[in-house]
Amino acid sequence: MKKTLISKEFIISAGKEIVTESGIQALNMRDIAQRCDISVGSVYNYFPSKEDLGIAIIESIWTEIIHNSKEYHSTLGFTENILFLFKNIQKGSKRYPSFFRVHPMTLSNMDKNKGREVMHRYFGHMKNGLIKSLDQDPNVREDVFSDKFTKVKFVDFVFSNILTLLMKEESCDYLVEIVKCIIYD
Rank of each mutant, 00 (worst) to 15 (best):
M1L: 14
K2R: 13
T4S: 02
T4M: 06
T4C: 02
I6T: 15
I6P: 00
I6R: 07
S7I: 15
F10W: 04
I12H: 10
S13A: 15
S13H: 10
A14L: 09
A14Q: 11
G15V: 02
K16C: 10
E17P: 02
T20D: 04
L27W: 08
N28Y: 11
N28W: 12
M29Y: 02
D31H: 07
A33G: 00
R35W: 06
S39T: 11
G41Q: 05
S42N: 10
V43L: 03
Y44R: 06
P48W: 06
P48L: 06
S49H: 07
E51Q: 07
E51K: 04
L53P: 11
I55E: 05
E59R: 09
I61H: 05
I61C: 05
W62R: 00
E64C: 00
E64L: 02
I65D: 04
H67V: 15
N68H: 14
K70T: 13
Y72K: 04
H73T: 04
H73S: 07
S74E: 09
T75H: 09
F78Q: 06
E80N: 05
F84V: 01
L85T: 05
F86I: 10
F86M: 09
N88Y: 08
I89W: 07
Q90I: 12
K91S: 06
K94M: 12
K94A: 08
R95T: 15
Y96S: 00
P97Y: 00
F100I: 14
F100N: 02
F100M: 03
V102M: 08
H103D: 02
P104N: 07
T106Q: 01
T106S: 00
L107P: 01
L107A: 04
N109S: 13
N109H: 15
D111G: 02
K114D: 08
G115N: 05
R116N: 07
E117M: 09
M119C: 00
M119K: 01
R121H: 13
R121T: 11
F123M: 15
M126G: 02
K127F: 02
N128Y: 08
I131Y: 01
K132A: 13
L134V: 15
D135Q: 14
D135V: 13
Q136N: 15
D137N: 08
D143F: 12
V144I: 15
S146W: 15
T150M: 14
K151A: 09
K151S: 08
F154K: 12
D156C: 13
N161T: 11
N161Y: 06
I162A: 03
T164Y: 11
M167D: 09
M167C: 12
E169A: 04
E170I: 01
C172H: 02
C172W: 03
D173I: 10
L175G: 07
L175F: 10
L175M: 10
I178R: 07
I182Q: 01
I183M: 04
Y184T: 01
D185T: 13
